[in-house]
Every structure is written in structure tokens, then in C-alpha cells.
Amino acid sequence: MTSLANRRSAILLFSLPDSLHSHRTRLVIKEKEISAELHEVDINNISEEIKFISPYDDFPTLVDRELVLQNSRVIIEYLDERFPHPPLLPVDPVARAKFRLALDRIEHQWYPEFNKAYQNGKLEDSFVDKIKSYFIEIIPLINDSFFMSEDFGLVDCSLAPLLWRIKSLGVDMAENKQTIDNYSERIFSRESFQASLTETEQDM
């Protein structure tokens, strides 16, 4: 890798190959067609140069000139404002607030529970029951297109990594299977989603 100190004119993203937070950040970058250098980080072999940028091994980490961001929620909202087209949050303040509530729940409840329940290539049965109940709640919001919208947005970007992993693990969504499969396919068929996958995620 060329010295990062000489590359601050470019947007750099350092992400893990199999992280929910890293995956959604890469998806936002690809959806917005942002010219960024994506660097995959081996958490067990982090260079001193990357440690200087992210001293607490907190990934994803985004570098935009002199700005360094390490929280995926902060990163994706920053990118949505920095590169406004296409917009991934609604313009309407009420809808925007509802999106942010959904994002908050996904990152503080769904993501941590998945990471805790995913062990040795399998999900604990208790989480399977939980994720089914979670999706029952949002079925009316994803039935026809994307989350609360005809347009792809940040909530879809955040649900996508979870849906990809659930699909790879063969989780049966029972009576909601068709709706969730259709919604998932609308996401997975996007060029941006396919481009966001690491080799590790492709092999899931």
C-alpha cells in the first residue's frame, strides 16, 4: 500500500471483510458511486500505518482529507450529505425521523444480537425467533418496494448485510418468506450491492 500520508486527497475506507457495519458502509459508497479507495483490513494483522489512523482498531474507518470517522452510522450519514445524489434519506422531516429511528434500532438491537447469536457458522434458535418477529413488524413497510419508499435508502443499506447473512444461513422466515425473499431480491440484484460484497461475503 502506498503511504497513506500521501493519499489524503482521496477518500479512503478501511473495512473488515465480514462485518455488518463495514458491509453497509461499502454499500452506501457503491450506491452513490463515490470514488473511494477501499482497503480490506485483516483484524489480526493491522499495519502500523492503519493503526495510526484507527488506534483502537475500530472499523470501518473513513478518511476524507483531514477528517477521520470511525462510526458506521456517522460515516453513512456523512456520505449522504457530502454526496447528495442519489439521496438515501427522505427530504420530509417526519419520514427522515422515522428512518433514523429504524437505523437506531438496527444498529443497537438487530446487529448486536446477530453478532452475539452467530457462532461456528450457525445462528442460535432464540435469535431466529427474534429476527422473524422483527421482520413481521416491518413487512408493511417493505411490501411493494423499499423501506417506506419507492427509492433505495439508508435503512435498506443497513438491512441488506443482515438479509444476505440470513439467506446464506438458510433461515426460514415462515409465512413471511415470500415478501422477505422479494424484498431481498430487489436489494441483491442491484449492481451496488453486488459490488459491495467482499470475497468472504460472496462465499457465504
Rank of each mutant, 00 (worst) to 15 (best):
A5L: 15
A5D: 14
A10C: 10
L13Y: 08
F14G: 13
F14N: 06
F14A: 12
D18E: 11
L20W: 02
R24G: 02
T25S: 13
V28L: 03
K30E: 11
K30W: 05
E31M: 10
K32L: 02
K32G: 00
E33W: 01
I34S: 02
I34Q: 04
I34R: 01
I34T: 10
E37M: 05
N45P: 02
N45V: 04
N45I: 00
E48G: 07
I50S: 11
F52Q: 15
I53T: 03
S54N: 05
D64P: 00
R65G: 00
R65I: 09
R65Q: 15
L67H: 11
L69S: 04
S72E: 02
R73T: 03
V74E: 12
Y78E: 00
D80R: 05
F83W: 04
P84L: 11
L88C: 01
L88H: 00
P90M: 06
P90Q: 01
V91K: 09
D92P: 12
P93F: 11
P93R: 07
V94S: 02
A95P: 04
A95W: 02
R96A: 10
A97V: 09
A97D: 06
K98E: 14
F99N: 08
F99G: 01
A102G: 03
I106V: 11
I106C: 03
H108T: 15
Q109H: 12
W110I: 12
Y111Q: 04
Y111L: 04
E113Y: 05
N115E: 13
Y118G: 13
Y118C: 14
Q119P: 00
K122N: 10
K122R: 12
F127K: 06
V128E: 09
D129M: 07
I131M: 01
K132L: 15
S133P: 08
I136Q: 13
E137V: 13
I139E: 09
P140K: 02
P140D: 00
D144I: 13
F146A: 09
F146Q: 14
E150R: 14
E150L: 06
E150S: 14
L154V: 06
V155S: 06
D156T: 11
S158Q: 01
A160S: 10
L162V: 15
L163W: 00
W164E: 06
K167A: 12
K167M: 07
S168M: 09
V171H: 00
E175I: 15
T179Y: 10
D181Q: 10
N182D: 15
S184T: 14
E185P: 08
R186T: 12
R186H: 08
I187R: 12
F188S: 13
F188N: 07
E191W: 00
E191L: 04
S192I: 04
Q194H: 11
Q194W: 04
A195E: 12
L197H: 08
T198V: 05
E201H: 11
M204E: 12
M204V: 11
